[in-house]
Design a protein around this nucleic acid. Sequence first.
RNA 1: CGGGCUAUGGCGCAGUUGGUAGCGCGCUUCGUUCGGGACGAAGAGGUCGCGAGUUCGAGUCUCGCUAGCCCGACCA
Length: 420
Amino acid sequence: MRLSRLFTKTSKSAPADAETANAKYLIQGGFVHQEMAGVYSWLPLGLRVLHKVENIIREEMDKLGAQEIRMSALQPKESWEITGRWNSMDVLFKVPSQTNKEYALGPTHEEIVTPLVGLFIHSYKDLPVAVYQIQSKFRDELRAKSGVMRGREFGMKDLYSFHATQGDLENFYGKVMDVYIKLFHRCGIDTKVVEASGGPFTKKLSHEFQVVSDAGEDVIVICPKCEVAQNSEMFDPGAVKKNCPTCGSAYEYKKGIEIGNIFDLGSKFADAFKVQLMDEAGERQTILMGCYGIGTTRLVGSIVEVSHDERGIIWPKSVAPYAVHLVTLKSKDAEIQDRIDEESEDLYDTLIKEGVEVLWDDRDASPGEKLADADLIGCPLRILISEKTLKEDSVEWKFRGEKEMRLVNLRDVIEESRSI
RNA sequence: CGGGCUAUGGCGCAGUUGGUAGCGCGCUUCGUUCGGGACGAAGAGGUCGCGAGUUCGAGUCUCGCUAGCCCGACCA
């Protein structure tokens, strides 16, 4: 992509009311645009990042054997009445229609997925089944905040699993836990697995995946030795423990961003929708369900929170909008300028042919502006061509997360780029 | 939903005791620049969030509303 053609622009000043790093840099860099409190449009650079995150999740879900579907965002009121959540879920957006009907705007999809899967599942032989989707969810939060972290419309992956036995469910639940840790790691994020209360939702198993960050809303309790963590909401305020019961170490209290949450739903939803199956003995059996969510847009925000400096974002390679930010600096010497143009264009074309994702700053802008934008946008590798570097028949090679730069000979650039 | 702050050009801001709106960035044109957000010159761009009220006169004062941000509560 040529930066001169990218319709979004970076901004020299961040929005005054952006306090969190994710809001500041995502907006300043032109990754997202805020439409309303808690509602964002995703622009070309931001959407590329979001797609990469989604594709990592997709790969891991597929490896788990889950099947991707896409469910409706508009949902029938009747289904929400069946589970009793039409009135009990306060964040539910209720959408009126011209015909005096009302719809729910999906904050989650149990009400859709349960009867949907039930339509096709009749025998224990059909199980287990796992389906997932990645799409927008809507929650009428009383207070949207912290940029992309808590929105009223946001991206989410949700996975639902269906099992004939508790043992099978727990086995799958454990697998998802491992996959989640791996998947977040692939996105450049370390998570703490935290035991959580399922709230009014379920009294059974529930775990959260927390990113330790001051931008977080939750307080998690971590034992530094055994790596055991709990959400502080689990603690009865009158009975806060100071030390880990297992090893005696003093607990650490840290703020965390919840980017994933998994639940053992039991038979709650299957019962509500009367989804049953025939077991080996020819008896009707209840189906057990698990659900496993990841906030995709929040995950992008979390990456920014844990990976930035005072100049901008430092994207992990796996989710960066482009792998390479190619910067061309001008020369006052016309002859040298011709060579700079030629080598830049050539390098840009060749890198693309090699399958390298390149953002080329071909603008007629000052060096300062170009370098500042490269830092703000935060692609992992900056390749710079200028009069100086061409004197050495080289380009400057600098990784966003590192201070040092080095020269790479023009004829070695392609070879070197294979290793990024 | 309670409390607080804010609302002036695309963005960031100033605007005094009320007198009819200005700066920086960005944008357009021309010229000079070119390794950490260059400079000069000439331009374009604003019903001052919305609605009432007070006043000869309101960006400025009063009331109402709306929106955004922050704290809290809430967060299947």
